[in-house]
Computed example of a mutant assay.
Amino acid sequence: MADSLEALEARLAELQAEILAAARVGDTIAMKRLRRQRREAQDAWDALAEQEAGQATPVTGRQPLSSPTAAPPRSVGTKPGRGTPIREQAHQALTILDAPAGPQLIAATHAAFLSEPVVTTRLGSLRRDEERSFAAQPFARPYYIVPALNHDWLTPVRGLLAVSTWPLERRMLGPLGPRTDFLSHARRIAEQVIRIQDAGLEPDPAAWRLLRSFALNIPGAYEGYGEPDPKRVALAAAAEAEVHTDADQSERRSAARRARNQLTDPVRLLFGASPAANVGTSQAQNT
């Protein structure tokens, strides 16, 4: 299993490099083909990761209360006496959330579903560490923790992290981005809780708290008492997201096109333009 995941991660890194190379020469046909291959590889990685998680009780939830002999939880990927590296913690949580997120949400998601605390202060310096690593040796790692990018100026959005293997459009943040990403987070968390229940396990109390915090802010998702119904939360989040999808996706695609045209340096395409450079003078000018 681990070898398969590593092979897929290596493939994702290769595809990302090929996409950037195609973007630099303006080969849109190759870019479409490579993006399709990247989506397929990412889906395969997600499926394998979820399968691996399903074989490890601590990742998906607690043992049923009727199993007194169950072993105490232990975080997957954590060896005795050594915690999971912060970049892997961020990647694991962001893979669940599937949209840019801030340190507090990353930490809460990891604690809810992976049974391991995250030191949020370390996430603050992680992006800069990742940028230095990439600049020194591009694409040496299967993925990098990168910032979300402002749709207007193509600069890093302070405090929002993403994954380098995601499509560029998903890393863009426009006017509707905060709400659509919030709804995406809610749906993914609800689906994670559903998977835990389908496996016959009891979600951790932290997972219920996290789900409730989202459900309270989505019309029709929750009545405000007891535990929220994860299926209802997922449906309510998807229903509201439909209202915003067309406009939000149009904004993201437009910003991504400008980014590919203006941020020709792979470092800048992943980590954003320097604010002092004033790349992207205005959205209206470049659409």
Results as ranks from 00 to 15, higher is better:
E130S: 12
R74L: 06
R171E: 10
L176G: 02
Q42V: 10
W153V: 09
T120I: 12
R257S: 08
R141G: 01
D198E: 15
A101C: 04
A239C: 00
P142C: 08
L123F: 04
L210E: 06
D204K: 15
A256T: 06
G26A: 05
Q249R: 14
I86S: 02
L176F: 14
S4C: 03
A22Y: 06
A10I: 04
G61Q: 08
H185R: 03
V146Y: 08
Q16L: 14
Q89D: 08
N261Y: 06
E130A: 12
A221D: 05
Y143C: 02
E50D: 13
P219E: 14
R74T: 06
T84Y: 01
A259S: 11
R257E: 10
Q51K: 11
L216S: 12
T28P: 05
R82G: 00
G83I: 00
I194Y: 07
A238T: 07
F214T: 00
A241I: 00
V157E: 15
P175K: 11
F182I: 11
L123Q: 01
A236W: 09
D98C: 06
R158N: 13
F113R: 09
P156G: 09
A186T: 03
A93W: 10
G174W: 02
P167H: 11
A47L: 13
F271E: 04
D98E: 13
A71C: 01
A44D: 10
N217M: 10
L201P: 00
L5K: 08
L126P: 08
R232Y: 07
P138L: 01
V76T: 08
A112M: 10
L34Q: 12
V119L: 12
K231A: 15
T180A: 04
Q42N: 07
L154M: 07
